[in-house]
């Protein structure tokens, strides 16, 4: 499932579409520690985090991460928005908390899993 589809399915608001909208999401990783996110960052991961800071975009930039999802309706500030725009990261924000956002993402991706291409 592409990042853009995932965003629509879980009802997240997309702030910057970036270049990653059509990336097929291979996995989702949620966390609030930069070190953890850094270790799990690959080029088809969607990172989910409470951290609404430019460092999240920096991680995306260094590790070629296509998309980032903030939670609990958190709005990115101007710095984060301009960083995401500059680097072409898809930045979205889910209205649900970390737990529920992950649950919804899991449902979307596991429903898709049997049709392996």
């Amino acid at each position: 499932m592409t990042l853009a589809e995932l965003a629509a399915r879980i009802g997240a608001r997309v702030y910057t579409p970036g270049g990653g909208a059509a990336v097929d999401v291979g996995r989702v990783w949620a966390g609030d520690r930069i070190s953890d996110l850094l270790n799990e960052a690959v080029d088809n991961v969607l990172l989910v985090s409470n951290l609404a800071s430019t460092h999240l975009i920096r991680v995306a930039e260094l590790m070629d991460v296509p998309g980032i999802c903030l939670v609990a309706g958190r709005e990115p500030d101007a710095d984060m928005l301009s960083a995401a725009r500059a680097h072409g990261t898809l930045l979205m924000s889910s209205p649900y908390g970390l737990f529920e956002t992950c649950g919804r993402l899991y449902q979307c991706l596991s429903a898709e899993a049997p049709t392996v291409r």
Partner: peptide
């Protein structure tokens, strides 16, 4: 607060 200081830097 910014997500650092997890004590994982040097091990990483």
């Amino acid at each position: 607060e910014l997500g650092f200081g997890a004590g994982m830097g040097l091990p990483n």
